[in-house]
Every structure is written in structure tokens, then in C-alpha cells.
Design a protein around this nucleic acid. Structure first.
Lengths: 179, 179
DNA sequence: TCTTCCATGTAAGAGGTTACATGATTGA
DNA sequence: TCAATCATGTAACCTCTTACATGGAAGA
């Protein structure tokens, strides 16, 4: 999903500024399945405005810099609906951790144990921060997505906890057997 | 993880040609946590050769085009080990499905049910294809990673199965309440 | 006083993908 | 006969990130 569509979709949930969109993808329910930087969001919003998919109004604020609040137009809604009619592309799960595990086995097997332990810590932290985002006033889909995220983190955590001893024992064995 | 490091790591598991590397990331155990196209793999291998991280020998084959088989050099191994010493970056889970769910709620709630059902089918298919890759002669880490993938797919599947009714009921309700 | 938050934007560059070009062989 | 598999490579293009520029207000 490109940044254009991401902006369109977020604006379908409510008006927002570029800064707010960035915060949503960096910290909100969006954070664990999407990403975008200012350097892509601001230009995307400008272009979407030029093309008539969104409108922009300036809001001067008390003791704060001015904001540009964007709203979806009807044309923008149609474009988004068209996008959603298509089947979503497959998930892209890029994991340096899993790659590192595979490679470490070949080149520095001692590292494997550390990698797994650090990863278990990570999951603990992430589960807590996702659960902290759960609020009473969320939309059903937001809650569903967040809880999906929590479920995934917990599944990964428990897989690692239940299989790490096995993995380490096997790596140690095959290491010794090869000598 | 950039394509350079990916190539270095795969070559640490054994010699391979560019074509074989591509197949591994597209179909093998790597497929669900990494990706790369020929257009990035071939130039990366050329550059790695120029820089002395890998060596290349041409292999003529019977009734098949020639192959260029790459091997990791000592320098390449050191570079890879250095990379692995660093903590792996966080996973990047980009999901058009989850985004579509959130956006569909706002703009075309009828689509939500279809999205979830199609997704459940997808998981079924993917679980079977991952399990088909499990073989007896895999290295411990390869097996661990593949089974991790299966565990994740199963967790996602069962989350969707257990919560879809809930989600649909809530969306229908809030839709009616708003009218 | 220093850092963080608010807020918007640009330019350069990194890092990829897609489409093309080529061509023999094998299986349906 | 037609598609798929094996096999390597290039060039154009696209998208996004990083780093920079600016500056006031609030909190520690």
C-alpha cells in the first residue's frame, strides 16, 4: 500500500493534518502494519489536493503553529472505494530477526541464543505497548486490528518460549558432531 | 535487510547462483520474511564480487544455460559476522489486509465480511504450502523458522475465526445506530 | 537551560521494482 | 504447439527515507 492510499484511508476515518497522520502510523493502531515518513506524507497530501481527492483548510491555533487540516472529497471516497474493491495484496513480513537466525547458525552459532532471548524481551515490551493503546471508545475495526496485533505478538512469544531449548540443543549437537 | 546482506547470508548457507538465490527468497523458507527481484540480486552479486566478499566461478551445464556459482570469501564471512553482531532491526509487517479492514469500516462496511473470509482462505492455503516445505533433512534453524511461520499463520487464522462474528455484529450495529 | 512537542516542507540520494532482451529445453 | 523452466543481465523508473531548514511553546 503506497502512501497516497494510506492517506486517503486515514482521512476516511476523519479529518487530519499531515503531522497527525504521521503520528497515527508511527504510534497508533497503524504502527504495526504500516509506516511512512514526513518526506512522503507531505508531498502525497499536496498531490492529492491538486488532484481533487482531498481538500485542505488552514487552521490557526492558539500558541501553536498553523495546521493544514485535510478532508476527503467525494472523488477521494470513490477512489478509495475502488481501491478497496480489489483484493488486498499479500502481507509483507520482513524480519531481520529470522534472517539473522538462519545466517547465525552457519556463521556464528553462539549468537543464536542471544538473538532469541532479546527477541523474547522485545515481544514482552511490544505486547504491553499495544495493550496500552486499547481504549473503550475505539471503533470495532480498530479494536479488532489492535487485538489481532496482540494475538500475533503473543503467538510469536509463546512459539519462541516453547521451542528455543529444542533449537539450542540441536544447534549445539550438530556443531559438535561436525567437529 | 538489504539485498547485499541477504545474498551474503544465503551464500553462508552454501554456494548458489543468482537464479537459485531468487528461488530461495521466492519459494523457500525465506519467502515469508524476505523478498528480492532479479533486478536487485544480479547487480548486488556483481558488486559483492568486485569488492571481494564473494567469488564467482562459471559452471557449464549439460543441456542448460551456463551458471555463475558464487561462494562466500573469508572477507565476506567477516562482513556477515559483523552484521549479525548488531541487534536485528524490528520486523516490518506491512498488511494491506488490515489497512483495508480499517478503511472499509468507514467507507464500505459490506466489504469487511468478504475481506475476512478471503483472508481465512488465504491462511489455509499458505499453511499447507509452508507445511509442504518441511523436510527431514533441514537444518535446525531452517526448521525452526519454517515452523515459526506455520505457527504465525495458524495464530492469525484462529484469531480471525474466533473474532469475525463479533466484528461483523458490531459493525452492523454501529451502522444501524448511525442511521 | 535543555529537550521535547508542535508543525510544514524540500532536496538528494538510496534502494528497490518492472519491463525488456535473449535463447535453449522440457513437459503438457 | 505452447507454456514453463532454466539462466543472466540492463535501463528506466518509482517510491520512499534521510537529512536539512525553520521556529515558537511547554515542560523538566
Amino acid at each position: 500500500m503506497d502512501v497516497r492510499t494510506l492517506c486517503l484511508g486515514i482521512l476516511a476515518l476523519g479529518d487530519a493534518s499531515g503531522y497527525e497522520i504521521k503520528k497515527m502510523v508511527a504510534e497508533g493502531s497503524f504502527s504495526f502494519f504500516s509506516e511512512a515518513s514526513y518526506g512522503s506524507i507531505y508531498p502525497a497530501l499536496t498531490k492529492l489536493t491538486d488532484e481533487g481527492f482531498v481538500t485542505c483548510r488552514a487552521m490557526s491555533q492558539n500558541k501553536r503553529p498553523d495546521k493544514k487540516v485535510y478532508s476527503l472529497t467525494e472523488k477521494g471516497q470513490r477512489a478509495l472505494t475502488d481501491q478497496l474493491r480489489k483484493a488486498p495484496g499479500p502481507d509483507k513480513n520482513r524480519s531481520e530477526f529470522l534472517a539473522a537466525l538462519l545466517f547465525a547458525e552457519a556463521v556464528s552459532p553462539d549468537r543464536v541464543s542471544d538473538l532469541v532471548n532479546e527477541r523474547i524481551e522485545d515481544h514482552d515490551t511490544r505486547i504491553r505497548s499495544l495493550e496500552a493503546l486499547l481504549a473503550d471508545d475505539m471503533s470495532p475495526a480498530s479494536r479488532f486490528v489492535l487485538e489481532y496485533g496482540v494475538a500475533m505478538q503473543k503467538a510469536a512469544l509463546s512459539y519462541l518460549q516453547n521451542h528455543q531449548d529444542d533449537l539450542l540443543a540441536q544447534i549445539t549437537n550438530s556443531g559438535e558432531a561436525a567437529e
